[in-house]
Design a protein around this nucleic acid. Structure first.
Lengths: 310, 310
DNA sequence: ATAACTAATACTCCCTCTGAGCATTAGTGA
DNA sequence: TCACTAATGCTCAGAGGGAGTATTAGTTAT
């Protein structure tokens, strides 16, 4: 690969949720860490969208439904520290988010729990231990080590915003910003440099900057939940309200108040009961379906989540 | 240019607001319509961001502050109907949104009212006449012309969602969706095809698909207003609350309730008074400044707008 | 059978946010 | 001094949403 050469690929973050675990599809790298499904931009593809669906079909044997462009990555240091990629060539990757219902496994591809990549993002059982044991001390130290008061103020602001330190609110959407701060602090395997790094509990890396891409996807998805009915792309056509709630909790990483969730979902006209019931282990639950008409009634239908823990 | 060749550019939607008019920077095309500032991706640019700032400096003599990546356009039909571009070559454009404070004009570049591109988006003086005279009839006709009930239902849903027909709410953020529907209906100059097109009042086109890019930018900016304090990028360091309100109105295309706007801006801790006052023609107004601390206090600080007209 | 358990569903309370309007104040210019 | 302009202050009502209590309808263990 010559210096200055430009290579363009499409990368896909394919998300499915089974058993309250959000997963992404990764391709096993033999001696490397796993990587995202990714394909070249073929001159024959009329649209980028089609190109993406084509190579996802080829590589993962998957027919994706919902697809959305995420971000285009093209900085020169993307492959920093990664063997086999000269830094002088530019790698341009157009990342996509795709949601699928069924999670049929595919040859060479694996479903991977996305909280294995970002353990600190799963707050369903309260703040994860890594936060207190490794992250918050490191961030606090970084703030302390500020060379000037101005820098210190900047760092404080960032720490507060991003990790909700100092009693501030934790914003579930800021996945990427948290990832980037940890990256800068050298806490992640892919940024640790020569230091063997104390990356215990700080998640598994992916190839190149794919972990950053997935962070982008996660943040985007969490944000979109609240104003577009995207959850239903991940559900079977009929489901109980509790299933829906568990799904939203899995994606947002937060526990929700059951009764309020019901009220919200029904009150917003997001779902409607089918008369059928499902046996669930306790009192049988009514089965619901997505109410498409809500799109006509409300400008921004979605499932609200309290992003804040005080 | 050979078939199958790939050309990558960065395109910039640079926004400034003066006198309650949001404007974008365009480069005058001699015999074509205006185009966005756009530059090649240089191998020497370490990051895409820097590449953008560099060529904006070169082409428009402008130093931009806030910069955000918007979307990457790469479908094959992007240059459809545009002279001088064979359709077999793929044009990949990474579009950016940039906000600037001062609007010093630049040689070869002009500031253009963005509502000249989308007259239907400015609802500050009530629904613009084009909506009733041209758009709504055309959309209604399109719905009527549905071949099957299923298609009809889809079209109805889309018309309702996007243009707020049938008493539904108008969502200011859906700029791109409105543009795309009008495009599909053949109402816009760039989509009219052989038909000379009745594009009166339907806005001026830009080169290639640049009008679509600006629509993306506008929608994104309107959305971002509500949860990030981006407005202040467009304001001088010190301003009156009414100035701020006029700015938000200009961007969102909607009139706001003055007293409530004040309460909101102050109550949310978004701004703080400097003791100074400005002579405004009536009772002097206090000058305010952006309160940076709000970033630490609130997870998603922004100026709310009622996106809905019933 | 009956009790213990699980999970769904119903309802209440209260606080905040926000849309809308009325009222007052402090300047400018005829 | 009055008319006018624009800023500022205040009230009120309804919607939304966070949190808790109570009730119901099943399953499972004894």
């Amino acid at each position: 690969m010559a210096a200055g050469e430009l290579q363009v690929t499409l990368d896909a973050v394919i998300v499915a949720v089974t058993d309250e675990t959000p997963r992404i599809l990764v391709i096993d790298g033999e001696d490397h860490s796993p990587r995202l499904p990714s394909g070249p931009l073929d001159p024959g593809d009329r649209t980028l969208d089609r190109a993406l669906r084509r190579f996802v079909r080829q590589q993962a044997g998957l027919e994706v439904g919902y697809v959305e462009q995420l971000y285009t990555f093209g900085d020169l240091d993307r492959s920093a520290g990664f063997v086999g990629r000269p830094e002088c060539s530019r790698l341009l990757s157009i990342a996509y988010l795709a949601l699928v219902r069924e999670s049929r496994p595919a040859a060479g591809a694996t479903w991977m729990n996305w909280y294995d990549l970002y353990p600190w993002e799963d707050q369903r059982a309260g703040p994860p231990p890594v936060l207190g044991s490794a992250i918050e001390p490191a961030v606090a130290e970084w703030v302390e080590a500020s060379p000037t008061p101005a820098v210190r103020s900047e760092r404080e602001e960032r720490a507060t915003m991003v990790f909700g330190l100092g009693g501030a609110a934790w914003d579930g959407v800021r996945v990427l910003e948290r990832y980037e701060l940890l990256y800068e602090l050298g806490l992640l395997a892919e940024s640790a440099g020569e230091d063997p790094s104390p990356s215990a509990g700080l998640g598994r890396p992916l190839q190149l900057d794919h972990r950053r891409m997935v962070a982008t996807a996660l943040g985007r998805l969490r944000g979109k939940l609240t104003y577009r009915p995207v959850v239903f792309e991940l559900l079977p056509p009929t489901f109980t309200l509790f299933q829906l709630q568990r799904l939203v909790e899995a994606l947002s990483g937060v526990r929700l108040h059951k009764q309020n969730f019901r009220r919200l979902a029904e009150g917003a006209g997001l779902v409607e009961g089918t008369g059928e019931v499902a046996r669930t282990g306790g009192r049988p639950a009514e089965l619901f379906r997505f109410r498409r008409e809500v799109l006509r009634e409300r400008p921004r239908p979605g499932v609200g989540t309290p992003w804040t823990r005080s």
